[in-house]
Design a protein around this nucleic acid. Structure first.
Lengths: 200, 200
DNA sequence: TGAAAATGACTGACCAGTCAGTCACAATAC
DNA sequence: GTATTGTGACTGACTGGTCAGTCATTTTCA
């Protein structure tokens, strides 16, 4: 593993637990097993390191999303797709990986507007695209009543956001079974979007 | 207005924009129009000031929730209640008040676990209670198929969380009409919970 | 041997928290 | 009514410690 990667790995841990302002470059260097000066050979400044850390941390999430594009490719798209979407996400949430980085992005998005944008383009937009696909294809074969929600696919991302942040903040106070929660939500949503159930 | 309140008002602005670590007591004092030493006459430390600021900032949100308890009291509880719940929340979200404090709480909940707990007890728990009421009463008169979601009322909080954070982070990148979004969600949810629409 | 990489002591800016001193006003004395 | 004394809220210069970023020196390696 390159020194640069070791520095990034050390930095993500400390940035996510302490936040930007409270992270000391000395500590990053120590954890990475290099001297402080070495950090500055690879990154121009603390801010540059932070940007690199966020970009680096978003990579596995992007990969996970890309893999999901493959899931059910060519299969019929319907309520089952929605269930599968949440299913594959819930395992990932439980690793804790997306929670830490999401909290960091939320925390620092005021100081670094650029990372909010990166996060949107990397995670939110592809996620919305995936959901819109499910909704559109589901609508075509009459499974979904997509019109209601066509312009608000983020309604289906909302429970993911909640599950991630709940785990991060309230898990000790009131535990939430991520997988069960998302499945209950998927039930509610797919039934709510089902034209069978529409009212006058 | 007392000096203590002036200090709190100054501090909430600066804490929410800069976060805990980057907030300087000098700046809080200057904005409050007092000397730095005066801040320490009213608060033992920067941390104590921060705790007080969060408690103080949660007050109007708690008030808004308590007012909502009145809304529809005695009325039939059903899909309309859900719509009214989101309706009264969306106006509040658009003030920007809950967004700033929510971001601060998320950002600092790692360093100050106590504020995550305060937030849960003050905002989340009452909100869940309100929703559980709506669901329970709605179930009794057969309006809702509450069984599915009875143990996961946070499914109905999820869109609120998303709307608040979206406004805080992505409003410039992709605007979201909070009220419309919540109404669409309410449609989906109430229909999804309606026994009329249940499938085999 | 010489260039590139790595080091860590050092510097200067920054800031939480302190505390000796001020002063507007209240209480008391005459 | 006026002078004297007392009070404590308020001030802001100061201290001690911290930390991002630098750079002269050392180490590595081809």
């Amino acid at each position: 593993m390159t020194k640069q990667q070791r520095i990034l790995d050390a930095a993500i841990d400390i940035f996510t637990t302490r936040g930007f302002a409270d992270t000391r470059i000395d500590e990053v260097a120590e954890r990475a097993g290099v001297a402080k000066g070495t950090v500055y050979l690879h990154f121009d400044s603390k801010e540059a390191l932070f940007q690199a850390v966020v970009d680096n941390a978003l990579a596995p999430i992007r990969t996970a999303l890309e893999l999901m594009d493959g899931v059910g490719h060519g299969d019929p798209v319907n309520a089952e797709s929605l269930h599968r979407f949440y299913q594959s996400i819930s395992g990932f949430i439980e690793t804790g990986v997306p929670g830490a980085i999401m909290r960091l992005v939320i925390a620092e998005s005021g100081r670094f507007p650029a990372i909010a944008e990166t996060y949107y383009k990397t995670i939110i937009e592809p996620g919305l695209g995936h959901l819109t696909d499910i909704l559109d294809k589901g609508s075509k074969d009459g499974t979904f009543n997509g019109a209601l929600i066509r312009d608000h696919p983020m309604a289906l991302i909302a429970p993911v956001l909640l599950a991630v942040l709940w785990r991060e903040m309230f898990q000790e106070i009131r535990p939430l079974d991520t997988q069960k929660f998302l499945q209950v939500f998927a039930d509610m949503a797919s039934q709510g979007l089902n034209p069978q159930g529409s009212r006058p």
